[in-house]
Amino acid sequence: MISKFLAAMAVAAVLHITPTVVLVQRPDAVKALLPGAEAFFAREVHLSNTDAHRLHEAVDWSPEDGVLTFYTGKTADRVAGALVFVRVDTPHGPVEVAVGFTPAGAIGGVVVTKATVETKPWVLEALRAGLVDGYKGLKPGSTPAGAAALKDRIGALPAYMAGQLDKGVARALLAYGTFYRGAKT
């Protein structure tokens, strides 16, 4: 009886997702990913049912309220780049990545903005091993493979989180390719 009770307590503890930790403030991520930008614009893409379904089928992602928000940075009249924040829900809690795109349409940088108390050390280990460097230059249509590239250099849980971050970058690539570059305002 007591062992069953303890087991139930342990399960409850395991299921308790630890609080979210902000690794980088969103404005700081924007400044890092859109260097030199002086003005910022939010491009809100309100997805139709068909497009929302297509996005979900492709990358297992449904943005909050069906709205994809891209942020564009401009310097005078020149576009400095665009970025999108993507949340990935893992069994250990959510992580959020900011994926920045150059005017040429390739990934210019990736910043992990949020993790949880539990996943933060795993995320940091993956970042220290150079996870985000592998994303630079990827264009829509390519597949991020940061976890595979690092798997022999980092522990199992950091590699797992790298896989989750790959998922976030894949979502950003598809969303950007389909709904930013492919859309008309």
């Binding site: 400044k31 910022f40 309100h46 139709s48």
Partner: peptide
């Protein structure tokens, strides 16, 4: 959800991204 995907763009400040 709209019938077809709709795009709306507006200016934001860095503060609004906090």
């Amino acid at each position: 959800p709209p019938e077809t995907t709709v795009v709306v763009e507006h200016a934001v400040t860095l503060g609004e991204l906090a």
